[in-house]
Each structure stands twice: as structure tokens, then as C-alpha cells.
Design a protein around this nucleic acid. Structure first.
Lengths: 196, 196, 196, 196
DNA sequence: GATGAATGAGATTTCATTCAT
DNA sequence: TATGAATGAAATCTCATTCAT
């Protein structure tokens, strides 16, 4: 029943996505949420804390989706492919909110040692962990090359989807549809040598 | 002779890298540059224009480096490997300034239709173009798979190095050294099938 | 039974003394008192009313102490000396709470015509009255100069101890111990001429 | 010709005297001074710094007046009397501005270790110093008791005039005119024993 | 009696930008 | 070309107080 607090997060997510964090004023968020200006600061100590809550609400769904994708896959390689497809679909379906994560979040946290940074790090580590497990599973069931360095590759895959997603959402480049090309690219890189 | 103007760009690059664009005030830039506050606005119409100049001064060096890497390579695949190694080295050697490109620039331009956005797009297109040419060369000299979609793959590679670089610089994850793993990963993805 | 209300006054006295009235928030007082924020305003109409209660609880003790000092003295001059010594001791023993009286109270009431101002005036008049009576007693028993203007001198003495106390508590000056010097100074000023 | 900065100090002195420091807004000061709101913060970093400047402008005149009073006196005792009369007259003629010193200043500085506190301490020490010199002069020329503890007495005298002044200005008590009574009181306390 | 979520008026301060010199 | 005093719009955050429960 925390209607007020929830309304603030929803309103903030919309506005941050549309105009960017620093171009959105707290007064606008309050108006959009239908609460008094001061109410924002009753529920969240600072404007940045609202951003943090938006981040968490999106990332929780994101990570849950990744875990589900892995759980339903029949093999390690299938899990990786499912992760890639999930990522591309999730971004497509949550353009607005995901943009907040990509565009605004890191700018405000890169330098700080705030507890907020720790929240981001925890989420990112979680995502990398899901990928790592899929890779290990693939090495064991033989669908992924045995000589692959797992940790490094997990980071590479995360970097790949992240970098792709970012420029797509930010609209700096007119990207061709990359769905299957990405899956192929990665499958090629990961699968065991043909003659093995 | 344009000592003043140059000093401003240098000072801005340092401060933007250290504190972020929006956390840096024009007054600080002026002080660090050793010029009067008003002088900034004599040389640059707006604060964002200073950022643009910083961006350009870095990206010009970056693109030149990429072109040189490609030019000296003996084959298409070698060119791709050289590009990857150049990227990783460049980032390492220009952490501070490159951070500005990664962190601050996109945030301010994602939504706008300013002429500044065009500058960024031109640079990114140039980088993708260099990769594309290397891929095509590889397809012709046989060092890269012939069935590879060139345009898509060029974007994938750019996304990969970008995504990797970004999180490394922003410090959200403690990455293991990825140099050779990245090169291997890409070589595997690009090289012709073993039995072909 | 009025535990809650008392706890509020005690908490307020501590915080006002430590941080000053306007630097203390009502939320802090509530927390320190262990009651809900709204409870303050159930017991006191405004924040200033809490201050008033703090003032009263200190001044009641102060005035009672002065009256006791006078009552136990053997002569008018002895009464004055007892008053001076009581003042210096009281301040020493109640530094924290007395600071509230000295520092915060007058600022908020100097211009107003609130009933609160009347409370302060009544207390001050009471204190001056005690001094005046001691002086009159001294004039009659011959321990104090007969040509002394009583009313004026009572105010002078009150001003003297007040001014001394204030700067001591506010810590603006490192005062030497003044106890006996003050008593001597005043005895000298008040006693009948040597040759009389 | 720093007209703007001066105008701000003058306006602030008036408003602080009339309404009190914390009841005066910076916007009001700007309007009264006829400058833009932002101009206040160009010349003074904070609102408190404006208060500090007001304090200094008054205290400089005050201390100069005290030194002049002493310089023109024919003896130590005459110097003390001149100081007392100067104090009473100064307060009378500068009610408004002096009220700022008495009422607002200490409240904001009692607890802090700011450089502002040092400014106040320096001024107060200067005032005490003037009194001390007058006392020493009186001890040497025989117009003041030789057994008087100089340091202590200087503080007592300063406390006396301060305490008197404060309640007069704050209007808590309807004081009778005290001018000559104060001078008499102090002369009595300071002069050498009659039979000496 | 007691609570605490909600309010909203208002305050200080920041800062990119302008412009007369 | 260069300056720096001046601007004023705007933004975040504070906090005493209210009121439905």
C-alpha cells in the first residue's frame, strides 16, 4: 500500500528515461507522481537515492530474466544463446527504463565511494556470475570449448552485449538488426573446434 | 599563438576526467587554465562546446591510431588483431582523457539534435568504417570467414571493445587482464572453419 | 505520569545547549526524547514553546537559589556577596542548560510582543528584585553606602554578572578565574566610605 | 568605489538590526541594496560572511572610539570614566547596528571553530586590552588602587558594560538612566582607599 | 493520548553566460 | 583580444506543523 513511494519511483523512471537524470527536476517528478514536492524528500533523502531505486527496480527484473533464461536452456551453449536473445529482447521491450541504467547511472557514480556504487557493483557482478555459470556448464557438457578461460570470457560477453545495447539505445549509430549475427558471432567464438 | 585557447582545452580535459563534466564549473576551468572566467566564453560559445573540443582532440588521435594499426597489418585478420590491441593499449595510456569520452559525452547528446551530435556520429562512423574495411580485406585474403556479415560484425566488434573499456574505466568491476583473451575470442569468431 | 512531556523538555535542553536552538530540528528532539515527531506538537503548540519550557525549568531553579542565598545571609553586604558567589557557582554547575538561556533565548524575543517575552521579563524583574532587597537591607544595617541609588545599582550588578557569565560561557575569551576579584570589586564599590 | 559591495553591507546592517539575522532573507538584503540576488554571493560566499562584515564595520568604529577616549584622558581614572561614557554614548547613537553585534553575532559563532570566531575574539581582546592599559596607567599615576588585579578587573569592567548594554538594547527591562550611576559605581570600586 | 506520513512554503546557494570596458 | 563584476533563473533540500487514524 506504499502507493506514494511507488508512484514516485514510477514517475521518476519515466522522466529520467525521457529527459535524462540531471535534466529532470525533483519538482517535475513530484508533479508527475501526484505528490507534494516535499514528499520526495520524506521518502528519499536525496534525488540520487531516487535514481538508485529506479535502477534497482529495473535491474531486479533484468537479473531475474537472465536467470530464467539460463534455467530453461538444454545445454551450456543453449544457455548462452538464450542469454543473448534475452538481453536483446529485454532492451527492446524496456527501452525507456533501460536507457536510464545505461545513460544516467554510471555518470553519477563512477567517482564516488558511496554505498550506491556498491549496489551497482553487486548487480553487475550478479550478471557476470550468471554468464560464468552458463559457460562452465557448457564446458562440462561439451557444447563449449574446453580451453576457454571462463572468467575472462564472461566479462567479454557482458562487455559485448553492453556495448552493443548502449549505442543502439543512445542512437548514435543507425545499427542494422543484429540479433542473429550476434548469436552466430558468439557461437562461433565459443564452440569446440570442428575437428575435435 | 593560440596559447589561451589551448590551455583551456587542456585544463578542461583534466577536470572533466577527474570530476565529470557537470561537476566541473567553468570558473574552475578558467582558474586551472590561468585565464579569466570571461575568456572561456570569448573562445567557446558554451560550456558544451569546450567538451566538444576535448572530445575531438582525443578522438582525432584515436582514429589516427586505428588507421595506422590497420595500415601496418599483413592481412585482414592481422588488421583486426592490431585494432583490438591498439584499442586496449590506447585506453590504458589515455585513461583520464578517454574517460571523458566514455562517461560524459553521450549523456549530453543522446536526445539532442545539436550539431554536436553530428560530430560524435561522424567519429563513430569513422571508427566502424575502419573495422569494416579490415573485415572486407580479411574476407578477400581468406583470413576471415567468407560467410560473415561484414556490416553487422563491424558493429559487434565495436560494441565489444566499447563495452569492455567502459566498465573497466568506470571501475565498476575488477576485471582480470583481458588482452589476449579478447584477441583469441575474436579470432575464433572470425576465422574460417577449420575443415574448410 | 507525564513522562513523555518531561522527556521532551530534557532532550530539548540538551540539544539546544549543544547545537543552539535554530540549529536543532524538532525531529531531532523527538528522536532524542524517544517519542514520535508528532508528539511534540501534541504537548507543545510550537517549537518556541518548548524553548520557553526549557527556560522556565532553569530559571525557576536559578531564582530559588538566589532567594535562598539572600535568606541565609547575616547582613545586606553579606547577602550581595552570597548572590555573587551563587551566580558564579550556578553557572559553573549548569553550563549546558544556562547556555540556552544566555545564547538562544534573547535572540528570539527581542522584537516580539509575544506572551513569551512577558515570561522572560517577569523572571528578570524577579532577579533584579532580589538584588534590590539585599541592597536596601544593607543600607539599613549600615553595611552598604547610604548614598547609593538602589534601583540603578541593582541593575548594574545584574548587568555585571550577566555580562561576565555570557562571555565565559560563549567561550570568546579565555577568562582568568574571577570569583574573588568580582566579590572584591563589588564590595569596594558598595561599602561605606572608609572615614565615614 | 566598490559601491555594490558597500551597499550590501549597509542594507544587511539595517535589516539584521531590524528583524534579526535569521529572520532576514538574502533576497531581502539584495532588494534593499538594489543589487541582484546572485550578487550577494559573488561578493560574499555565504550569508554568514555578510554578517561578519557588518560586525567588523561596527566594531572597527567602536574600538577606534575607545582608543580615542583613552588618548584624550588626563589620568588613568579619567580614562576609565571616559571609556564608560563613550560606551554608553556609542550604544545610544548606534542602537540599530550595535544590536546586531549583541544579539545575532554570538549565537552563530559560539560553537564553531570558524575563522569568523577568531575575528570576534580578536576584537574582544582588543577592547579588553584598551581597558587594561587604562587601569595600569591609573595604578602608576595613583588615581587607581594599587592592589587591584589588573587583568581580572579589566574583564569585570568589560562584562559590566556589556551586560548593561545588552539588556538595555534587547528591551527586556525598563532601565532607569544609568549613566552617572555606573561611573560612580566604578569610580568607587577603583579609587584608592580614602585614608591612603 | 500518540503517531508518523505528508505537506508546501521558502531559503540558500550555484553557475553558465553577458557585457561594458 | 581579454577581462571579471554582475546577473537571475533555477534547483535541491529543510523543517515546523497538520491531521487522519
Amino acid at each position: 500500500m506504499t502507493t506514494r513511494k511507488e508512484a514516485i519511483v514510477v514517475a521518476a523512471a519515466e522522466l529520467f528515461a525521457e529527459k535524462g537524470f540531471s535534466e529532470t527536476t525533483t519538482a517535475e517528478v513530484a508533479e508527475q507522481a501526484g505528490v507534494a514536492h516535499g514528499t520526495l524528500f520524506y521518502h528519499f533523502k536525496t534525488k540520487e537515492n531516487i535514481l538508485l531505486e529506479v535502477f534497482e527496480s529495473i535491474m531486479a527484473r533484468y537479473q531475474a530474466g537472465m536467470e530464467a533464461a539460463v534455467a530453461n536452456a538444454g545445454s551450456g551453449m543453449a544457455a548462452i544463446e538464450a542469454l543473448l536473445r534475452f538481453q536483446l529482447a529485454f532492451v527492446e521491450e524496456n527501452r525507456q527504463e533501460y536507457l536510464v541504467v545505461l545513460r544516467d547511472f554510471p555518470s553519477y557514480l563512477a567517482n564516488s565511494d558511496s554505498p550506491q556504487k556498491a549496489v551497482v557493483q553487486r548487480r553487475l557482478a550478479g550478471v557476470v556470475g550468471v554468464i560464468r555459470q552458463a559457460l562452465e556448464r557448457g564446458r562440462q557438457d561439451g557444447t563449449i570449448r574446453g580451453d576457454l578461460p571462463v572468467e575472462e570470457t564472461a566479462h567479454i560477453l557482458r562487455g559485448l552485449v553492453y556495448g552493443l545495447t548502449r549505442h543502439k539505445l543512445l542512437g548514435f549509430l543507425a545499427l542494422p538488426p543484429l540479433g542473429e549475427a550476434v548469436v552466430d558471432f558468439c557461437r562461433q567464438a565459443l564452440q569446440p573446434a570442428a575437428g575435435a
